[in-house]
Structures are given as C-alpha cells and as structure tokens.
Amino acid sequence: MSSDEIARPLSKTARRGPTSRFLRKYALQLGIVAVALIVWVLFLIGAPRTFLSKEIYVSFMSTTPYFALIAIPLTLVIITGEIDLSFASVMSFGMVGYDVVFVATGSVWLGFFACLVCGLIAGLVNGMIVVKFGVPSLVATIGTWYLWRGVVLVITNGTGLGMTATTTTALHDIVVGRVFGLIPMQFFWTIGVGAIIWFFLNRHRFGAHVYLTGDNIESARLMGVNVGRVKILAFTIVGLVAAFAGFVVSAELLFYWPTLGDGYQLTTIASVFLGGTSVFGGTGTIFGTFVASFIIGAINAGIVASGLTNFWTQLIYGLIIVASVSIQTLLGRKLT
C-alpha cells in the first residue's frame, strides 16, 4: 500500500527553533545544575572557612550516599506514577536480616546477603500490594513503613548491633572503604547505582515502559505494556537498594541502630522532586535526582556549618519539596 495515501499536511503552526528546543528539553537539568552552583556559591560566601576545606567535601561524599542511593531508584517508582514512603524502615529491616544471620552464623558475608534479600522481599511486598490488590501506593507504603519498623523493633527488642566484625572482611573496604585514603567508596557506589539505573531507564525496554506506565497507564496497557510487572519491579529495586544503603550506613558508623533510616525520608523524597521528577509521573531523570541529592547534602552541611540548629533542617527540606513540586508544575504548564 502506498504510505503517501495517508500523508498528513504540513503543520501550519510555526514551532520554535532548535536552540529553544534544546533549552526546553533540558530546562530542568540545566535548572538543577544552576541551583547547585548557586547554593554552593552562597555557602562559599556564607561559610568560607568550611566550604574551602576539603573535609566538608569528604564528609559530603560519605553521608550524601545514605539517601542519594535510595533517591535514584525511587525516581523510577515516582516516574511510574507511584510513591514509596517505606524505604526508611526497609533500610532497617534489611539490617535485621544481617543481624539475625550474622548472630547465627558469624559470617559477615552471609549477613550482607540476607540484608539484600530482606530488602528485595520488602520491595516486592510493596509492589504486590499496590499492583495485585490495587491499594494506592501512598497508603500501602505508609502501612509497610510502620509494618517493617514494627518487625524490626520486635525482633531486635530495640537493641542495636556492633558492626566491627565487618572491618575484618573485604566487604567493609568494598562498601565503605576510602579510595586513596580519602574518597569514600559509597560515593562510587552511588555513581555506579546511578549509572546502572540510568541505563535501564533510558536505554532499556524496562525504562521505556516505566515512562509509558507513568505517562498514560491506559495507553500503555492498550499497547501491551505489562504495567503491573513494571511497577512491581520498580518497587523491588527500591527495596533492594534501600537495604544496601542501610548496610552502608551501619558499616560506616560501625553500629546498627534499629531506628536506622529515620530522618532520611525527607532528604530522599526532596532529592527526587528537586531533581525535576514529576509528581504526576511520566517524566524525570536520574541525572536530576543525582545532582539534587548533593544539593540537599550541601544544604545539610551548610545548615550545620552556618551554626543553625538541626531544627531548621525539617523546615528547609519541607520548603524545598513544596517549592520544587510547585515550580515544576508551573513550568510544566509553560514549557510543553
């Protein structure tokens, strides 16, 4: 059949040129980089002594991964149009797996493996509740947030576990060692996790389906996308990485506290939204989340360095979340 037969006429409306198209396409990414630079300059001016020393950057690279690691896969879940609030408890639930297996076997490696398996299961459970039962993820993951925290407290009876045994294994160096005696390994893990998830989101069929599911779930279904499987997989990855992040924190601090994860909720979610991922699903980038995590980390350090109390952090992160989703929504209306 001749394809010209269904030829469409030229679009009569003139659209904007290539430069403006580039700017619009990367507006959010350029914006987030600009914000990062502005925040940095502000801190350089506000607290030059702190921000000109290398210690702040090392501490930065050591602690930002605690939540940046999770913010990266959480971006996937939010692009599918869902949310996961339970990851902070899953960090601790994974470490309960470590705790139990390590105490029983004395093996750090087996404990680490158990930690990852627990995280994977917790993520899978979230995905199943949302997809199979059709419970809105906001409600489902508030439920599992308390559920896993409860499981942790019951099993540990509220007592923690020393992690010094990990230092006798290579695992400690692999996960939280220092490269050249300076750069924390968790920083490279964050880059690694970011790169892998970037690949799957942008260059793999799974990622294409993540975007389609969040953009228009009905269209995606009509065109044969298995939207349920996509969502379950996204939740499972968050669970897995959250447990890994829990291990990173515990190995770095050499102690596992059952309350592990509390306090990372806000920073993690703020990173995703500040990074330009849409609350409505369908759009978002790993690059944005990555840069935004470090902005949040800088703000964290800046608050401490500029002598403000910790009470300010909640106020500021709350403000960041509200402002970034509002600006995004407004920009979204203008730019498309």
């Binding site: 793999h204 990622g207 389609l212 995606a220 996308v225 849409s278 369908g282």
Partner: peptide, 26 residues
Amino acid sequence: RALADKQSLWRNIFMGRELTTAGGKL
C-alpha cells in the same frame, strides 16, 4: 488514540514493542 503525551514521537510509535538488541537494550 492510545498515545503517551509526555513522550517523544519515536517512543509513541514503538510503544509497547520497542526495537531492541540483545537483552532488551533499546
């Protein structure tokens, strides 16, 4: 119509049956 509004034209054309190379790589 079954389109995904926020996605590019090429992603809409190949929606649900993306052309891939080994292992599902787009």
